[in-house]
């Protein structure tokens, strides 16, 4: 709630309500263009997709499903889909926390007053997400090839006895995808933390210093709490991005081996465009993703968005 507390003038209740009411209206006016655009560009197609998810059939030959939730029921029997759900959650649980912690540490280091070559570090770490997917996937596939650089390095360090067939075993293929995600998106999240850090009150850091807090304590008890709104934002975004993950699954491993690294969105694309087109079924997959993201976002909001 926006309050006018601190206003020196003594306002009557009626005037106060009038002023607040008007400000409230102004606030709504500020939201209208964005809300209208989202309504037309997102919600309208989403409603269409919801209707579509209740229809079954192939190509343009779509009819109301019998029963209406047939597509959803069919998903539970679809072994490939169930596998993609498992894969996606493996990515989510491992990659998102690791990435956000790394991004936090990096932004903290980069925000230090006495750090040299700031611009260089910042640019270098951000750049991966600016690189086209084509070159990124080529490089990663080359690096993780059986006779590739990663295996050469591991063999030289005696960490493995024989070359690892990275992209052709379920767990190592998933590892490559997670490494790829970390590589591409850590710098991206770091940018938000950096922007967030700029908006912080510098006095709190000075206070912490005076109180004799070391760098780790300052980071944990001063920086992180103040960055909470931004951490919440990146957590929701990363969860959302990972549950809708398509690029890495498509370009790095092609979902292989044997669908063991394929994501839900990749499967959605398959049933819509690559295989026999079943748009009703695809729409049902997209609503499963929506519900999963919504539940996780709701939990994150509840945990992280408390206004103190």
């Amino acid at each position: 709630m926006t309050t006018v507390a601190g206003t020196p003038r003594d306002l009557s209740k009626a005037r106060r309500f009038g002023l607040e009411g008007r400000r409230n209206l102004t606030g709504w006016a500020f939201l209208i263009p964005a809300a209208l655009l989202i309504g037309v560009m997102s919600f309208y197609p989403m409603v269409q997709a919801l209707i579509l998810s209740l229809k079954s059939g192939k190509g343009t030959n779509l009819n109301w499903a019998e029963p209406l939730w047939y597509n959803y029921e069919r998903l539970t029997r679809d072994t490939i889909f169930v596998q993609t759900v498992k894969n996606t959650f493996v990515y989510l649980i491992i990659q998102v926390p690791v990435m956000l912690i790394l991004a936090l540490i990096l932004s903290y280091l980069l925000n230090k007053k006495d750090l040299r070559f700031k611009a260089f570090w910042r640019t270098a770490i951000f750049l991966p997400c600016a690189v086209s997917l084509v070159s990124y996937s080529m490089v990663f596939r080359t690096l993780f090839a059986t006779d590739g650089f990663v295996n050469d390095a591991l063999l030289a360090l005696h960490l493995v006895d024989a070359p690892v067939n990275w992209l052709n075993q379920p767990n190592t293929a998933r590892t490559v995808i997670i490494i790829g995600l970390l590589w591409r998106w850590t710098g991206y999240n770091m940018v938000f933390y950096l922007a967030g850090l700029q908006n912080l009150d510098y006095a709190t850091f000075e206070a912490a210093k005076i109180d004799g807090a070391g760098p780790v304590k300052t980071f944990l008890y001063v920086t992180i709490p103040q960055l909470k709104p931004m951490i919440l934002l990146t957590a929701i975004m990363s969860t959302n991005g990972t549950l809708q993950l398509f690029d890495e699954s498509w370009a790095l491993t092609a979902g292989g081996p044997a669908n063991m690294s394929k994501t839900m969105s990749h499967y959605l694309y398959d049933v819509s465009f690559r295989l026999t087109p079943q748009f009703g079924y695809g729409a049902a997959i997209s609503y499963v993703i929506l519900v999963l993201v919504a539940i996780l976002a709701f939990i994150q909001m509840k945990v992280g968005d408390r206004r103190d």
Binding site: M46, A49, Q244, L268, G282, S286, V293
Partner: peptide, 16 residues
């Protein structure tokens, strides 16, 4: 409004 970003684009593309 947040719901709008939670659905894969491939699903809303045809109506759009």
């Amino acid at each position: 409004l947040l719901l709008a970003m939670m659905i894969p684009f491939a699903a809303t593309m045809i109506p759009l």
